[in-house]
Design a protein around this nucleic acid. Structure first.
Lengths: 141, 141
DNA sequence: TTCGTTGCAAACATTTTGCAGTTTC
DNA sequence: GAAACTGCAAAATGTTTGCAACGAA
């Protein structure tokens, strides 16, 4: 793994990613930081996201409508993806057991680094149509 | 759901998708059919794939290296994704229980249509480096 | 004859990359 | 001062779409 310098913007990115549970897109992170770092560029966001993934600081949890969604919470947990509004919600009560991985590894003669459990459906807000508060959902226009 | 005519090419697409377990990309399907249907176009492949998804005949199982991967086997089963070569392997011994979905639905007041369980790691072939038979893996150059 | 389907090419959206200037150490 | 980091714009990639021609009912 290559040598890394400190970087203010990279630092801020990680801070933003880790302090939200919206499972943001690259663009959401970019917009979030634009006010503090007016000359930030999307390329930098993508480059640092790939670094975070390599380092295991951030994990890619889903691809919703063609956009990758990230999570700074790397502890094992499942997710629910609303196929209407694109919300991703943490599901803490299920999965994440490492013994799962080990079982698959020996059955298929492979190495298992991690697994994801993802539920798809319609979220509470979208079911009760009146609440249209998709303001904070990344990946929405 | 709108009315559908019969289409030779669409028919052939479904046949191809359902008779492989490689979890192909759109392009792989396209290349597979090009010899039989020389004037087939990628646009048609994408259009029909989206139709299949709407109808539930085909399911999207993962996004590997930016390419969507499809499965004609819609029975509930898990997958293993090799992060080295992109292979996707069926994992039949785990998950798929509908009671999982119901539990999440009531806990989060949402509707759950389906869930996916996906393991990530290094497959048997990639571990034993000598076997470089990635010929049939969709999504490889 | 009507309307669904397709080929083609252009359009789109997301992500990656090359390069020159800047920052970190 | 060397090497990492970034902005910018261009490029690459995967997918969608408009339109005119084609095929099915």
């Amino acid at each position: 793994m290559r040598k890394l310098n400190f970087s203010k913007k990279r630092d801020a990115m990680l801070e933003v990613i880790c302090s939200t549970n919206t499972h943001p897109t690259a663009e959401w992170i970019y917009n979030r930081l634009k006010s503090d770092y007016p000359n930030l560029s999307l390329g930098t966001v993508y480059r640092n996201l790939n670094l975070f993934k390599e380092q295991g600081l951030v994990v890619s949890v889903a691809n919703v409508n063609g956009q990758e969604r990230f999570d700074g919470n790397t502890s094992a947990h499942a997710h629910f993806v609303c196929t209407k509004c694109g919300r991703i919600i943490d599901v803490d009560c299920v999965g994440g057991s490492k013994s799962f991985d080990n079982r698959i590894a020996s059955m298929y003669d492979c190495e298992v680094d991690r697994h994801t459990i993802t539920f798809y459906g319609t979220c509470s807000s979208c079911r009760h149509a009146h609440s249209d508060s998709t303001a904070d959902v990344p990946g929405l226009k």
